[in-house]
Amino acid sequence: MRPLSERWRLAALLLLLVVLQFAVRPLPGDSRVERVMPDFLFLALLVYAIRARPGQGAVAGFVVGLVTDALSPAAFGAGALAHTVIGYLAAWGKTVFFADNLVVNATFFFAGTWIRDLLVLLIGRHVQGAALYWQIGYFSPLKALTTAMAGMAVLLLFRRLLHIRIRE
């Protein structure tokens, strides 16, 4: 069990990421830039999931997915499905990779974001043709990259709370 104060601090960090999602993402004012902005909500999910049990990760993923579906209901349910899978796998994957390594986490953020986008696009089937390829091959990797960079920044800033090893 984590100490109570640590849990509160983790909750505060997750809340901060959720606030950033709504405060920072609309700032550029250009839809193309907004499409590649870091996904702080998803980052919050991953930060939580790799420190939780797979079941908790799945529930958190489901909730986050439902919220994203509510915000852009073009393919309602696709987000919930994709986030549930990613949340579960992220928590389960702790047994496979070192969750306290900075580079591994960054790679994980990148891959997670990209795969999540792929799942949403494939399950939702609301984007087709050339737009689908552009999304998968261009916008999604860029968004994954910015999310990974934002994730690294979060891990560095809150390394003590998140138990991240800088030198390995």
């Binding site: 797979p54 079941g55 908790q56 997915g65 349910g77 919930a80 928590a91 702790k94």
Partner: peptide, 26 residues
């Protein structure tokens, strides 16, 4: 790794998955 293999987690995952599918096809 022993903490992440319970049936409860698998069950939670399956329920969430089911709910998500239900939301998708609703």
């Amino acid at each position: 790794p022993e903490r992440f293999t319970s049936r409860r987690d698998t069950l939670a995952f399956l329920i969430c998955l089911l709910c998500a599918v239900a939301a998708r096809v609703a």
